[in-house]
Simulated assay, not measured.
Amino acid sequence: MVFNVIMKKKLLFLLCILQGVLSVSQAQNTQRNIAYTDANVRFSVISDGVLRLEYAPDGVFVDDASHLAVNRLYPQATYQLKTSGGWIEIATPKMKMRYKKNSGQFTDRNLVITAAKGASPFTWKPGIQQKGNLKGTYRTLDGMDGDTQSQTWVADTKQGEKLKLEDGLLATDGWTFIDDSKGLLFDNDPDWNWVKERPANGGQDWYFMTYGRDYKAALKDYTLFSGKVPLPPRYAFGYWWSRYWLYSDKEFRNLIDNFHTYQIPLDVLVVDMDWHYTEKGKGGWTGWTWNRDLFPNPKQFLGYLKDNKVKVTLNLHPADGVASYEENYSGLAADMGIDPQSKQTIPWINSDKKFMQKMFKHILTLMEKDGVTFGGWIGNKESMTRKLRT
Score class of each variant (00 low, 15 high):
residue 218 A to G: 02
residue 193 N to Q: 13
residue 206 W to V: 01
residue 218 A to H: 01
residue 201 N to K: 10
residue 229 V to W: 11
residue 217 A to M: 04
residue 218 A to S: 02
residue 211 Y to K: 03
residue 195 V to R: 11
residue 191 D to W: 04
residue 203 G to W: 02
residue 189 D to A: 07
residue 187 D to W: 03
residue 212 G to A: 14
residue 232 P to M: 07
residue 206 W to S: 02
residue 233 P to C: 04
residue 236 A to P: 00
residue 209 M to H: 10
residue 235 Y to F: 15
residue 226 S to Y: 10
residue 196 K to Q: 15
residue 242 S to K: 09
residue 235 Y to I: 03
residue 236 A to R: 09
residue 211 Y to G: 03
residue 194 W to F: 14
residue 204 Q to H: 09
residue 190 P to G: 05
residue 222 Y to M: 07
residue 197 E to N: 13
residue 209 M to R: 01
residue 200 A to G: 00
residue 238 G to W: 07
residue 222 Y to C: 05
residue 189 D to V: 06
residue 242 S to N: 11
residue 225 F to P: 03
residue 219 L to I: 04
residue 217 A to P: 00
residue 216 K to P: 00
residue 231 L to F: 06
residue 212 G to P: 02
residue 191 D to R: 12
residue 229 V to I: 15
residue 205 D to M: 03
residue 242 S to P: 00
residue 210 T to W: 00
residue 225 F to M: 08
residue 237 F to S: 13
residue 228 K to E: 15
residue 215 Y to C: 01
residue 212 G to S: 11
residue 215 Y to I: 01
residue 193 N to T: 09
residue 234 R to Q: 14
residue 230 P to Y: 08
residue 238 G to E: 07
residue 202 G to C: 06
residue 193 N to R: 11
residue 203 G to T: 01
residue 235 Y to C: 02
residue 201 N to H: 06
residue 188 N to R: 14
residue 190 P to L: 08
residue 215 Y to H: 11
residue 238 G to R: 10
residue 215 Y to P: 01
residue 192 W to R: 14
residue 218 A to W: 00
residue 229 V to K: 15
residue 208 F to V: 09
residue 239 Y to N: 15
residue 196 K to C: 10
residue 200 A to N: 14
residue 196 K to R: 15
residue 225 F to E: 06
residue 228 K to H: 12
residue 201 N to P: 00
residue 196 K to L: 09
residue 212 G to R: 04
residue 222 Y to E: 08
residue 241 W to H: 13
residue 240 W to M: 06
residue 194 W to D: 11
residue 192 W to E: 12
residue 225 F to G: 06
residue 196 K to T: 14
residue 206 W to A: 04
residue 227 G to S: 11
residue 200 A to I: 01
residue 223 T to A: 13
residue 210 T to E: 01
residue 221 D to T: 06
residue 201 N to A: 08
residue 201 N to Q: 12
residue 242 S to Y: 15
residue 218 A to Y: 02
residue 211 Y to S: 04
residue 222 Y to T: 03
residue 213 R to K: 15
residue 206 W to D: 00
residue 191 D to I: 10
residue 225 F to A: 06
residue 192 W to N: 14
residue 238 G to A: 08
residue 211 Y to P: 04
residue 230 P to H: 07
residue 226 S to I: 04
residue 237 F to P: 00
residue 214 D to I: 01
residue 242 S to L: 11
residue 233 P to Q: 13
residue 188 N to Q: 14
residue 225 F to W: 13
residue 233 P to A: 13
residue 194 W to E: 03
residue 227 G to H: 10
residue 206 W to P: 02
residue 222 Y to H: 15
residue 191 D to C: 00
residue 204 Q to L: 08
residue 229 V to M: 12
residue 200 A to C: 00
residue 195 V to G: 12
residue 209 M to K: 02
